[in-house]
Simulated scan of single mutants.
Amino acid sequence: MPDQHRKRRIPLPFRIRGHPDEEAIQRSGEQWAAQYGLLTDARALDRFRRHRITGLMTAGCAAADVDMASLVVEVATLAFFLDDQQNNAARTDRAAAYDSLNARLRAVILGADVGAEDNPLVRALADVLERLGVRASAGWQARFRHDLLIAFQGHEAENVFRRNADVPAADGFPSMRREASFCYPLLDVLELCQEIWTYYQALVTVEGDRMTFSSVEHGYRPIPVGSSDGFVYAVRVSGDNSVPELTCEACA
């Protein structure tokens, strides 16, 4: 991400309400990540803290009990490390290895058993699924698992282009980006902690698109082509368009 965007602070016209136990939730999240081997050293811990996942997610569940808010943060933490794994695999020519992990994650979502020999991310996913199952209705669980599968299918689609040193067409990029962004599972758990069910899923779709595409200009890196980022996506949103218009151009 460009340095100017790292330092940029965007003023908001309202005050964000934080969770009164945010520090305890942060510690709980760090302990959970360490328990599953996701945080292995001081450098990883420092990087994790700088992303301020706890503050972001608990702003959406400020009235939830500590256990529920911690679970929300852990789902977001899992998404953070999955994104890291996918990006690292792409940079080190291990996309096929990530695809194997992806397939195992999807098998767990569909009910496969998990053992001690499984990847830490697989065991962490199984843990959050089990704990969410205690709190959520069967309908919510089905939707959450469906949305997880969509996210992992999006990762798989991205990896096809990465392995082939190719870039998706502009008309196919929005749906792939939307699916791979992990925004829908995160919105699901925020709904759960608010004890609401969004019947109007179009609202979730619009908010998911806002989350997904508003970050493009603030550091989204196009899919690598060969050893460099050879394509740039331009995003245009105007008027009543709920789906961003994208153009794809090669650059030197």
Rank of each mutant, 00 (worst) to 15 (best):
D65H: 14
L110G: 14
F80Y: 15
L82A: 15
G139S: 10
G154F: 01
E156C: 05
I150A: 15
G139L: 12
S137C: 05
L78K: 08
T77Y: 09
D113R: 07
A63C: 06
G115I: 05
G60Y: 06
L82T: 14
L149P: 09
L148T: 02
I109P: 01
W140S: 10
V72P: 02
R131E: 01
A76Y: 10
A95Q: 15
R50Q: 12
V66W: 07
E117Y: 12
S137I: 04
L129W: 01
R104K: 06
I150D: 15
V134E: 15
Q85D: 12
L121F: 00
A151G: 04
Y98N: 09
M57V: 13
D113Q: 11
T58A: 08
E156F: 10
R91C: 03
A95V: 13
C61N: 07
R106F: 03
D93Q: 05
L78Y: 11
A142Y: 01
A157V: 01
L110M: 14
N159D: 02
A79I: 15
D127L: 00
I150V: 15
T92M: 04
N102F: 02
P120H: 05
D84L: 13
D65M: 08
S70L: 07
S137M: 04
T54H: 03
A116R: 12
Q85S: 13
F161E: 04
E74I: 06
L71F: 07
A151E: 08
N87W: 07
L71V: 04
R123H: 01
E130Q: 15
N159T: 02
A59V: 02
E117I: 12
D93K: 06
E156N: 13
A76L: 12
G55L: 05
A97D: 15
T54C: 09
R143S: 15
L121P: 01
A63K: 03
A124H: 01
G154I: 08
V108W: 04
D67R: 13
A69F: 09
D83R: 03
W140E: 10
V128H: 00
V108T: 02
D99S: 06
I109R: 03
A157L: 04
L82Q: 13
A97C: 11
N88M: 12
C61R: 00
F81I: 06
I109M: 08
Q153S: 13
A62L: 00
A112S: 14
R94D: 11
D147I: 02
Q86F: 08
I150P: 04
D147S: 01
G55P: 07
G55R: 07
T77F: 05
L82P: 10
V108S: 06
V66Y: 02
Q141P: 00
A59N: 02
T77S: 11
T92L: 00
I53T: 08
A112D: 14
L132G: 07
R145T: 14
R131I: 02
R104W: 08
V160H: 14
H146W: 05
L148D: 01
R106L: 09
F161G: 02
A151I: 07
F80A: 06
I150L: 15
A89F: 07
L56I: 14
P120T: 10
N87H: 12
T54I: 03
G111Y: 07
F152A: 00
A136D: 13
D84R: 12
S70E: 10
C61Y: 00
